[in-house]
């Protein structure tokens, strides 16, 4: 249960090896979050994350979970919810893809869309239902500023995040009155393994800074969080830039 100061006791990460998720989990474990489930594809990194969180006093379980394998979602996630109340679910999996290659190969493009959108729709629906049965809990969805307006440079990833973002907003609306809170997080460029080797764009930020914004947003019950916060204003400006001009913007 979340306490009166908004501190959650349990966390389920979907995409347990994500750098942003790990920064968030680390901060939460140092406070009151002592039960953590890391769901993701088996890897050394997810095991290392689990080990590190254990040193912070948390009980951690690693759950094999593939966002693309939607047929298994119900079984895998039901097990977690049967065992425990989950105060916060962090939907963090995602793939950036390689825009240039993906444009040439429909199967590759579909794989990006499948993980980022379809995988999130499937697990998001299941998580929403499970939280509703508890009568409390938060689902945090890592969208992206790229969802706000698709760009030439990464419209395959961007469109999948746009779909995810719209889905998460709608899911949040459907949960009004159920005790469940859905929070959409829209980071800009974050320095993580996903963006390794990529050139930083303006307003770039760190996983730690995003984690802080997630934790504050959870405490306040925010519906939308931009990271950094300045993106809220930048994007509300960019939203109205005419397309021919937008296309040529250096971002």
């Amino acid at each position: 249960m979340k306490d009166s100061l908004g501190a959650p006791q349990s966390l389920l990460v979907l995409g347990g090896s994500s750098d942003i998720a790990m920064s968030t989990a680390r901060k939460m474990a140092a406070a009151r979050t002592k039960k953590i489930y890391l769901a993701g594809r088996p890897s050394q990194r997810i095991e290392d994350n689990a080990a590190e969180l254990r040193t912070l006093g948390a009980t951690v379980e690693v759950i094999p979970f593939d966002a693309a394998a939607t047929d298994d979602h119900d079984k895998v996630l039901s097990q977690v919810f049967a065992a425990d109340d989950i105060d916060v679910v962090l939907l963090a999996f995602g793939v950036l893809g390689d825009q240039a290659e993906d444009e040439k190969d429909p199967a590759r493009a579909v794989a990006v869309a499948h993980v980022n959108y379809t995988g999130a729709v499937s697990s998001g629906i299941i998580v929403g239902q499970a939280l509703k049965k508890q009568g409390h809990g938060s689902l945090v969805v890592l969208s992206s500023v790229a969802a706000e307006r698709a760009r030439r440079a990464n419209f395959i990833y961007g469109s999948s995040k746009a779909g995810l973002d719209a889905f998460a907003q709608g899911l949040g609306d459907s949960m009004v009155g159920t005790g469940v809170h859905v929070m959409v997080v829209r980071p800009g460029f974050v320095d993580t393994k996903m963006t390794q080797g990529k050139e930083k764009t303006p307003l770039s930020t760190t996983p730690d800074a995003v984690a802080d914004l997630i934790i504050t947003g959870l405490r306040r019950g925010s519906h939308t969080v931009w990271a950094p916060g300045a993106f809220r204003y930048v994007m509300s400006g960019l939203r109205h830039v005419p397309r021919p001009l937008f296309r040529r913007l250096p971002m």
């Binding site: 249960m1 409390h136 005790g179």
Partner: peptide
């Protein structure tokens, strides 16, 4: 009926 309940401090509600 479903209702969102708080304690007197009006923190951490849940629906029951």
């Amino acid at each position: 009926h479903a209702e969102r309940l708080y304690g007197w401090g009006m923190t951490s509600p849940s629906v029951a």
